[in-house]
Design a protein around this nucleic acid. Structure first.
Length: 639
RNA sequence: GCCGCCUUAGCUCAGCCGGUAGAGCGGCGCAUUCGUAAUGCGUAGGUCGGGUGUUCGAGUCACCCAGGCGGCACCA
């Protein structure tokens, strides 16, 4: 007998080989009906899988998060079956889950069309209705390869070849259709349900390598219930309305045109926002002990050759040749320039750390397909700084940096999505010991600032590991904004040195760091995060003074002048329009405060304030309103 | 760069099977002075991303190019 322990603490004996289904049935008829999977000691198994040993057992039903993952994965299988029924000759490859859904990559010469998606969805529903039992089989490796090659599934055969020798090869039979899969799966296709939708069509490379064949990826979303699906679709729709490109146009912040792909034109309001952010970051950074510098936009290629960037990145640099035959490269990053400033004169260990900051305008020739609004551009300004320090200063400087970043993100009310630690890449400089120390130092520094990091192998820069601070856009894509990178290489290549306590020359360590990253990208995220409704201190237009009739014009002018003198960005709306119309218009333009003045306010020396998103009014004496708004419009670091 | 889709007035979008373009908002003009998310009337805007082809005739079909979007790849 094997001993199974249930979540409620109950322990029961069962014969070895009992299935999850039988266990569920032994508890209650209704549980047997609802059961989808069984969990044994944390491992999720098919309901029909014989249990050979005892342990903590749990019957998993539709409403559990684990079941949802399996539902999504099974929906991908149903998708694959439907595609192969409809389009014979199409090869299947892989179909993993992603956030909120799944995808499946197919190899087929002819591309799928959007119309095909509807067709495929209909067939998927049909397969769900057919209620095909899903069963697990363990196959011999050689037979499995022969089978999949025999039916022309070369990708599946390839996958089997790459499965480590000790692992079992499992094939799931779904009606008459078979797929190689680790599982687990639902008992039958009926349980997949119909709360799914195919959402997008895309190209994707086999094994993520652009040298390989391009496959066709179909994305879908799947949920445990129709209500969940509907809610998800609604969320997506709402998120799309927060798209910074739409809001940017509606608020007249910026535009991008064909002749300057990836190079935003900032309009007056957008530029006000931009400068407000820039000045805020500048103050916080200076207060943290940085010095600001400015360096050339375009430099002789020899500097980039010395730094090593020319060899590695010249394909993504803008280059110009002069009439005299010099080759100049537009700077893609500031690091070498900062090293050159460091190298001027002689530096002592007493000077370190030197924290050198620049709002550096950069140009990078990013691939055409990667450009995206403000989030991926070819022209950007980074809040770029380099900290030249000693080995011993790396950790405290790193921790201080992360604290500064946390402070700034908190002030801007954005939420950090994740922090990644990009570890040594295959091609790199430096010894393994050096890398181990560098990686561990960054992680310790992060932990000291209360940040948990996610280690990602192979993603580091060639000169050192990096911490990446990721934010999310409206539809959930993540974007690296802040970064902290450890670099032993560039000081060496560009011969940066300081005189140590011992009177000898030493190499400083260089920390590359940015908090908002590129102002363009950060503003893109910020616009989406706030849906254009910025906190008062950031809003490009902070208040509009709106009259009700022309009799309020004089007083409105005085109110606007008072607010402007107090430093607020204010517009007066004296147009001959109904006040309701003005309120609507400025609300749509996301102006945080509308100050309505009519005869009453004029007579009493007051203003009626209306906040964006609220329909209540606050009637205040002008002095009080000015004091209140001024306080609120003060950037967080100046309060 | 690769795959797919899209590209019509300032904006958002409609234009079926090919017969030389419509709406709403916005703009402009006039009237209206009206207390918190759209006052009424009038009026001007486009040759349909660019090009080539098919056709008696193309926004509508085909092809090429460009840009945008969703992915993939890339991201110092």
């Amino acid at each position: 007998m094997i001993e199974l322990k249930f979540p409620d603490g109950q322990v029961r004996d069962y014969p070895p080989g009992v299935t999850g289904r039988e266990v569920a049935a032994s508890l209650s008829k209704s549980l047997e009906k609802k059961a989808l999977l069984v969990k044994l000691d944390g491992e999720l198994l098919d309901l029909g899988r014989p249990l050979e040993r005892g342990g903590a057992v749990q019957i998993v039903t539709r409403d559990s998060p684990e079941a949802l993952e399996v539902i999504r994965h099974d929906t991908a299988h149903v998708l694959a079956e439907a595609v192969q029924e409809l389009f014979p000759g199409t090869q299947v490859t892989i179909g993993p889950n992603v956030e909120d859904g799944f995808y499946y990559d197919f190899a087929r010469d002819e591309p799928f069309s959007l119309d095909d998606l509807a067709l495929i969805e209909a067939r998927m529903r049909h397969i769900v209705d057919r209620d095909e039992p899903i069963t697990r089989e363990v196959w011999d490796r050689g037979e499995a390869i022969a089978h999949f090659e025999g039916i022309g599934e070369i990708y599946k055969a390839q996958i089997i070849r790459d499965i480590p020798g000790e692992e079992a090869i499992t094939v799931y039979r779904q009606g008459g259709w078979k797929d190689l899969c680790r599982g687990p799966h639902l008992p039958s296709t009926r349980h997949v349900g119909k709360a799914f939708k195919l959402t997008k069509l895309a190209g994707a490379y086999w094994r993520g390598d652009q040298n390989n064949a391009q496959l066709q990826r179909i994305y879908g979303t799947a949920w445990a219930s129709d209500a969940d699906l509907a809610e998800h679709l609604k969320r997506i729709e709402e998120a799309e309305r927060r798209d910074h490109r739409k809001i940017g146009r509606a608020m007249d912040l910026f535009h991008i045109q064909e002749e300057g792909r990836g190079m935003p034109f900032w309009h007056p309001k957008g530029w006000t926002l931009y400068r407000t952010l820039e000045n805020y970051v500048r103050r916080r950074t200076e207060a943290a002990g940085y010095v600001e510098v400015a360096t050339p936009q375009i430099l002789d290629v020899s500097l980039w050759e010395r730094s090593g960037h020319w060899a590695k990145f010249h394909d993504s640099m803008f280059v110009s040749e002069t009439a005299e035959g010099e080759v100049l490269a537009v700077k893609p990053m500031n690091c070498p320039c900062h090293v050159e400033i460091f190298r001027q004169g002689q530096k002592s260990y007493r000077d370190l750390p030197i924290r050198m900051m620049e709002f550096g305008g950069l140009h990078r020739y990013e691939s055409s397909g990667s450009l995206l609004g403000l989030l991926r551009v070819r022209r950007m300004v980074q809040d770029d700084a380099h900290i030249f320090c000693t080995e011993a200063q790396i950790e405290p400087e790193s921790t201080a940096f992360i604290r500064l970043l946390q402070q700034i993100y908190a002030d801007l009310e954005v939420e950090l999505h994740s922090v990644k630690l990009a570890l040594r890449p295959d091609q790199r400089f430096g010894s393994d010991e050096q890398w181990t120390i560098a990686e561990d130092t960054l992680e310790r520094a992060a932990n000291a600032a209360g940040v948990e990091v996610e280690r990602i192998p192979g993603e580091g820069a060639f000169y050192g590991p990096k911490l990446e601070f990721h934010l999310r856009d409206a539809i959930g894509r993540t974007w690296q904004c802040g970064t902290l990178q450890l670099d032993y290489v560039l000081p060496e290549r560009l011969d940066a040195a300081y005189i140590g306590e011992d009177g000898q020359k030493h190499r400083p360590v260089m920390l590359h760091r940015a908090i908002v990253g590129s102002l363009e990208r950060f503003l893109g995220v910020l616009i989406e995060h706030h849906a254009g409704a910025f906190p008062l201190w950031l809003a490009p237009v902070q208040a509009v003074v709106a009259t009700i009739t022309s009799e309020g014009d004089d007083y409105a002018g005085q109110v606007a002048a008072r607010l402007r003198r107090a430093g607020l960005r204010v517009e007066a709306d004296l147009r001959n329009e109904k006040v309701g119309y003005k309120v609507r218009e400025h609300s749509l333009a996301k102006v945080p405060v509308i100050a309505v003045v009519g005869r009453r306010e004029a007579e009493e020396g007051k203003v009626a304030l209306r906040r964006l998103g609220s329909d209540r009014q606050q009637v205040l004496p002008l002095d009080e309103a000015v004091a209140m708004l001024t306080a609120e419009a003060t950037p967080p670091d100046l309060r």
